[in-house]
Every structure is written in C-alpha cells, then in structure tokens.
Amino acid sequence: MMNLKTFFSRALLALSLLAGAASANPVYHVALDTTGTSGDGYMQIDFLPFATSDVLTATISGLDGAFTGTPSLDNVVQSGGSYTFSSDAFSEFFQSITLGGKFGFDVMFGGVPTDGGSIGLSVSLLDSVGDYLSFQAAQISLVAGEPAAIAVDPGFATVNPVPEPEDWLIVATGLVLLGAMQRRRA
C-alpha cells in the first residue's frame, strides 16, 4: 500500500510540474544602455514572421526610459501601457528617445510557429538623422520545439528571461511535496 501512495504522490508532482511548464509563456526583459551616446534618437521595434503562416503575437510592457513624443505604430495595438504586435503583417513600434540613458521593457510572446517557420522581435537604436547606432541591438527569435535564440549587441543591450510568479509557485509546491514525502518516509 505504501508503494502505491508513493507512486501516486510522485506522479502528481510530475504532472503538476509538466502542466506548469507547458502553460508558461516566458517573459524576457530587454535592457538598452545608451550612456555612451547623447542627443535625440529613436528606438525601433519590429516583429516579423519568417517562412510561417501562423499568426502570432508579441506584447511589450513596462516601457522605461527617456521617451519623447508619441510612438508611431504599424500593425501594433496599444492598450494601456502595453503594445501588442501581430505577425500577420509588418509590425513596428517607432519612438523618439533622448539618448544618454537606459531603456527597458518586458516582452511576452503569444505562441511559436508550428509550421517550421520562425518569428523574431528585434530592437534597433538610431541617431537623430536616422542612422543606426545599433541595428538589431537585441533580437529574440522563436522556432517551435527549440529554445529562444537571443542575440544582442553587447555595447547596447542585454536580454534576460524573467521568472514568472507561477514558476516560483510550481517550485515551492514541488519542494513542499518532496518535504512531505521525506517526512512521511521518516
């Protein structure tokens, strides 16, 4: 009887961990550092499909930095402080900024291509006349069944995954269940 209880406890733990991992859409924090520059400039964020017919989304939120004016949006929907891009057409966020400081935002993707293609979100920085300071300072590409491909210009950008509260809850639940199993075993 004890072996059956142990089996079901471990099966429940494994299923809860798998369910949490399968349902999670990772969030990435993009940080841009323009402290080596000065003057007016622009931030350009593009979201593009590559050889996929799947319609997917990317949502950026938590924009932080010296933004000026109103962003120019192509195939991007603004809702509150969030901007949602769609891969069914060219999607671009173009914003004037004051160079010389730090900028950041979080991005979450609404799925990955299922037909063998990919999608990519890229962030570029431009000077006041529209010349690139860093073309694709940060880029995140997604392909089904593969980890995200992240490329950065180390002089300007970093991209890091953000742990979600659900991830911490799953880990805590797993640790509590493991502790309970060890205590019961003793």
Rank of each mutant, 00 (worst) to 15 (best):
M1T: 07
M2V: 14
N3V: 11
L4Q: 08
K5T: 12
K5Q: 10
T6W: 10
F7Y: 02
F7I: 05
F8R: 05
F8C: 09
F8G: 02
F8Y: 10
S9A: 14
A11Q: 11
A14L: 14
A14Y: 11
A21I: 14
A22T: 13
A22F: 09
S23C: 05
N25I: 01
P26T: 02
P26E: 05
V27Y: 08
V27N: 01
Y28V: 07
Y28P: 00
Y28Q: 00
Y28A: 04
A31K: 06
D33V: 08
T34D: 04
T35C: 01
G36F: 02
T37I: 01
G39F: 11
M43S: 12
M43E: 15
Q44A: 02
I45V: 09
I45M: 05
D46L: 13
D46N: 13
L48R: 02
F50V: 10
A51N: 11
S53V: 04
V55H: 02
T59Q: 06
I60N: 09
S61W: 03
S61Y: 12
S61Q: 12
G65N: 07
A66I: 00
T68V: 15
T70M: 14
G80Q: 03
G81V: 08
S82G: 06
Y83N: 09
F85G: 08
D88V: 00
A89H: 00
S91R: 05
E92H: 02
E92M: 13
F93W: 04
F94V: 04
I97G: 06
G101R: 11
G101T: 15
F105Y: 15
D106M: 04
D106K: 12
V107H: 09
F109A: 04
F109S: 04
G110D: 03
G111S: 08
G111V: 05
G116R: 03
G116Y: 06
G116P: 01
G117S: 02
G120L: 07
L121A: 01
V123P: 14
S124Y: 07
L133H: 03
A138H: 01
S141A: 15
L142P: 11
A144S: 12
A144Y: 03
E146C: 04
A149I: 07
I150P: 07
I150C: 08
V152R: 05
G155A: 12
A157S: 08
N160H: 08
P161T: 14
E166Y: 07
E166H: 06
E166M: 10
W168T: 11
W168V: 10
W168Y: 12
I170C: 13
A172C: 13
L177K: 04
A180Y: 11
M181T: 10
M181P: 05
Q182I: 13
A186D: 08
